[in-house]
Design a protein around this nucleic acid. Structure first.
Lengths: 353, 353
DNA sequence: CTGAAAGCGCTTACAG
DNA sequence: CTGAAAGCGCTTACAG
């Protein structure tokens, strides 16, 4: 009864007694339309329940009104990492403002990843956001091959790709600079002030720039304090690795009195393991997480962590991409500084280690 | 140097010395094309690095090649709920097979939710997936208003909307039936076999059909065992609610000897709280989660939980939607049965409560 | 097996 | 301030 056929701009134009061009212009505002005509057009559109077809608009303007995000991590990790949903929610806020949409792919292999970008490049999105930059990331080059505008969220300030100057130039991708080093420094200082000397680090995967960034910051901060920065083990952000790496660390003699984890999940698994070994937190062992997950704040004891402003970063990254699409000069913008949330898992080290 | 302008089907046709129609047909396979012609076409396409523009195809076929998913939960909850990433990864596997894409919106309010669906309906997607059905969900009606094909993932077998028969008919939406009741029954039986009598339930939000589904299953299972099913408190899936509801439960006298939580995050927060109160798990208190999150398996003790096959459900839901779009009669399909993972947080109740 | 042409529903110079 | 027309890059009857 309601809708036999979706109304088109032609139907609206006819009903309002104007041309299709005028209807289009009335909506885009790209040229003034007289008040009365305008009113008639909107009335007709409302009566016909008309909205411009995005497909037609996309073809006419060669703008899809969508951006793409492909996440190449196992669903297990995404599911425990509060970063992604927060980041995506942040993207959404600014996309909604401008009536755009987000295409998301969660892929399992590098092959699927490439396929996803190719699909996106075939006129599905106007640009993409690059997350989880790797140390020698192949995507900047892929983006320039595909002619796909991109913005990356990346701790490092310089482009991730390396190679000949010529190709490099094509591979330079504007970045939102999300440095976490300062938070790692604060965390180390916090532990040192509490009296710790033997501080260990369970890092994230070192294939990622952010993993390396935090690890390097740990080394720098420890060194600055005149402490030995060599107690580092590499985790992979999963609970399993948090537990195992913690077990390794606790087997050392002398064992660390504090552990700085690269994310909350590993810290929570580590905390749980340490307790099962009879250690009290923080009396026998201090620990800190990273990401400020929902759980961190409601564990007993509450986990000291760092809030990385993922949602703001999402918004900022989209804004930057939009600017790039609008033809603005690619600039590197700095995302909000991470903030350390002091809670109950940090205390003085035990007297007799 | 590489690409002055994106090649079009016309360029390929010209280079291969055929018509645009033939190029199109060679790719779609909708009509036979002679081997030699075919070869020339593919060669030309490869040389020009051509891929059909999705925008143009969308306009010509009135098919976008994309489906939509809008998630209306606070990012905090999504971030700790392993369901969403797994479900999305499952969607992706079948979408990738057929070269389609997923549009995702994470929205904060009902207003934004409606706006997202409207945007999708304006020729952005071919259909949508409805998650987190509410008890009187307004979306089935909205979908029929917008003329947007939809499939829902829903524990209940019958349509979620109610109203006059006439509108109802329009609002009937094919479902993938994801019933969790059987797992709740198993969990209750497991606890009863271990010797528990005073079993409590921290439910999910009861605005959701799945929250009600699990709660009802709890009541039924307890009743079937001849036990009092009235120790129920409503949580909201967050760690905060897990901790608070657990605290309430532990203040009761006599207190429950076992708690069945509607998700893992609440169970983990509850476990942590109980321990901080000096209770040993499972000696003093048994507890079970739901979802089988990454953390559950690597806590100490490991959390008994239930795997709900979210990834398979995602794949199944997309397949169902694809069938609907292909014009197949809407059928209700049953998703994989959830499976209980017995781990270490269930033991016999304490002797002297 | 292949080609010429119309059409999908918009936007945007070009004229007036 | 408004209209007629071309064009975006495909697909799909229609002819042959």
């Amino acid at each position: 009864m309601t809708q036999h056929r979706k109304a088109t701009i032609g139907d609206v134009a006819e009903r309002a007694g104007v041309s299709k061009a005028t209807v289009s212009l009335a909506y885009s505002g790209k040229r003034p339309v007289s008040g009365e005509t305008r009113r008639r057009i909107f009335e007709a559109a409302a009566a016909l329940d008309w909205t411009a077809s995005e497909s037609a608009r996309a073809l006419a303007t060669s703008r899809t009104g969508a951006i793409g995000l492909v996440i190449a991590r196992p669903p297990e990790i995404i599911s425990t990492d509060p970063f992604f949903p927060r980041f995506i929610a942040g993207c959404e806020t600014v996309l909604a403002e401008v009536g755009m949409s987000l295409l998301l792919s969660v892929v399992a292999s590098e092959k699927d990843e490439t396929a996803a970008y190719r699909r996106y490049a075939a006129g599905r999105v106007d640009g993409v956001i690059l997350l989880d930059l790797e140390v020698d990331d192949r995507r900047p080059r892929l983006m320039s091959e595909l002619g796909l505008p991109a913005v990356r969220l990346d701790p490092s300030a310089c482009p991730a790709a390396s190679g000949s100057p010529e190709t490099d130039e094509a591979a330079i991708i504007p970045a939102v600079h999300a440095e976490n080093a300062s938070a790692v420094h604060e965390l180390v200082d916090l532990l040192v002030e509490a009296g710790h000397r033997r501080i260990a680090h369970v890092s994230g995967p070192l294939q990622y720039v952010h993993g390396v960034d935090r690890r390097d910051a740990f080394v720098a901060a420890m060194t600055a304090q005149g402490l030995d920065p060599s107690m580092i083990v590499e985790g992979d952000f999963t609970a399993a690795s948090g537990r195992e790496r913690t077990a390794e660390l606790l087997r050392m003699t002398p064992r660390p009195t504090a552990i700085l984890y690269a994310n909350d999940v590993m810290a929570i698994a580590g905390l749980s393991h340490a307790r099962s070994q009879g250690l009290r937190i923080p009396e026998d062992l201090s620990l800190t997480g990273f990401d400020d997950s929902d759980l961190a704040a409601h564990l007993s004891p509450r986990l000291t962590s760092v809030s990385t402003g993922a949602q703001a970063a999402g918004a900022m990254t989209v804004r930057t991409l939009l600017a790039v699409l609008a033809g603005d000069a690619p600039t590197t913008v700095r995302s909000d500084a991470p903030v350390v949330i002091r809670r109950e898992t940090v205390g003085p080290p035990p007297q007799t280690p």
